[in-house]
Each structure stands twice: as structure tokens, then as C-alpha cells.
């Protein structure tokens, strides 16, 4: 029987090569050998963390991060019913893009956070700060994840922060995306509670904030 680290290496290589067939074979092999969802989840989380670290170091591309998340989410969701697995007791989390329609970052984070077992409500793209806060209230969210590609939409997080404070809501804000990577101070300036440099960072921030 292969050790966990061997599966981690195999899966990482398959995901970075965007190889759907190989990825499927690895999931199938792990399932037949270990028959444990926790084991599959551990492997996936280790791999996604390594891929996230690679992205932060500039060794892994955004396309690879995205495709890895999509493939892991697909196979995790395929195997969940086989274990009658129920998701973690998740805080209520929403994810959104303010103002513009660039939703790649949102998709990446959604895939990876979902693959980690959290339930996530997709609040959409192109939202105004007010519509985002209204949606957060309506869905009784604990955390909102905001993905930004452009500077103007990143700056709008400040308005979301002010509305949350004015209404005395207990909602945490986690931001991510290009403007927050290019300017290390920006997430604090807009009032966010945390900034994810990679999608895997977001999982750690969620665990820390709740």
C-alpha cells in the first residue's frame, strides 16, 4: 500500500499538469486502498497547500491554481456521497465580487474552500457595497470573502466595512486578489479582517476568525 506522501506527490503532479484522467485514477486508487474520506481530504488539503505556497512563491500559475481547485472540488464532490459524509459545521460564509465581473478569483476560492469542507454561498459578481451588505444580512453571514481584480473594486471594500460598522453587524471581511497582493497595506486600509494571498490562506483565515 502506498504511503500518504506518495499520493500527495502524485496528485500534485497530476493537478499541475491539469491531467483529469490521472487525477481521477489517483482518487479512485486512494478510495479503494484506504476507504476513508478523511484520508482523501488530508491528501487534497496537503496538495492544495503546496500549490498555494507555490503560487505565493511565483512557481505555480493562476491557471494551475484554478484548474487544481476545479478538479479537486469535482472529485471530492463525487466521493462525498460514497461516505455519507456531512460537511463540517461551517460558519455562514458568502463570497462576492464588487463592481466588476471578473470572477476567476471567486471561482478559485470557492473551489478550494469547498474542497476543504466548508459551505459557501455565492453572492455573485458586479455587486455594489450596499447590495453585498444586504445579501450578507439576508443570509445571516458570519464571514464575507471579497475577491478583487481591479483597484476601484478593492477600494470599495472600505464602504462595505463602514456599512457593517454603522449597522453594528458581526460580520468579518476577508479580501484577496491582485490589488491586495500588489499593495501589502491595502487590506488594512480598507478595513478588512484578513487578506488571503492564496486560496489556501483563506481556509486558515476562516479557521482563525471563527
Amino acid at each position: 500500500m502506498k504511503e500518504k506522501n506518495a499520493y500527495v506527490d502524485d496528485l500534485k503532479n497530476a493537478l499541475l499538469g491539469v491531467d483529469r484522467i490521472k487525477t481521477s485514477e489517483i482518487f479512485s486508487e486512494v478510495f479503494s486502498q484506504y476507504n476513508s474520506f478523511e484520508f482523501i481530504e488530508e491528501i487534497v488539503m496537503d496538495v492544495l497547500k503546496q500549490i498555494g505556497d507555490g503560487w505565493e512563491k511565483g512557481e505555480v500559475s493562476l491557471a494551475q491554481v484554478y484548474m487544481s481547485g476545479v478538479l479537486c472540488e469535482k472529485f471530492i464532490n463525487e466521493y462525498i456521497p460514497k461516505f455519507k459524509f456531512s460537511k463540517k459545521n461551517s460558519p455562514k460564509i458568502g463570497i462576492a465580487v464588487l463592481l466588476d465581473k471578473h470572477s476567476l478569483g471567486k471561482s478559485i476560492v470557492s473551489s478550494i474552500v469547498s474542497a476543504a469542507g466548508y459551505e459557501l454561498k455565492d453572492l455573485g459578481s458586479g455587486l455594489t457595497p450596499k447590495s453585498l451588505v444586504d445579501l450578507a444580512k439576508r443570509n445571516k453571514l458570519d464571514i464575507i470573502l471579497i475577491s478583487s481584480l481591479m483597484l476601484p473594486s478593492a477600494m470599495k471594500v472600505r464602504e462595505v466595512y463602514r456599512m457593517i460598522k454603522d449597522e453594528n453587524l458581526d460580520i468579518k471581511i476577508i479580501v484577496g486578489g491582485a490589488p491586495f497582493r500588489l499593495d501589502d497595506q491595502l487590506w488594512k486600509m480598507v478595513g478588512a479582517d484578513g487578506r488571503g494571498k492564496s486560496a489556501y490562506d483563506v481556509i486558515e483565515l476562516i479557521e482563525r476568525l471563527v
Binding site: 466588476d100 465581473k101 473594486s153
Partner: peptide, 13 residues
Amino acid sequence: VIFSPDGPPNSGE
């Protein structure tokens, strides 16, 4: 094309 007051115009659908 979607124009915004404080940033570059973006493509829509």
C-alpha cells in the same frame, strides 16, 4: 462595455 466612474471601462457579458 461597462463604464464606471472611478476605473477603466470593463467588458460585460
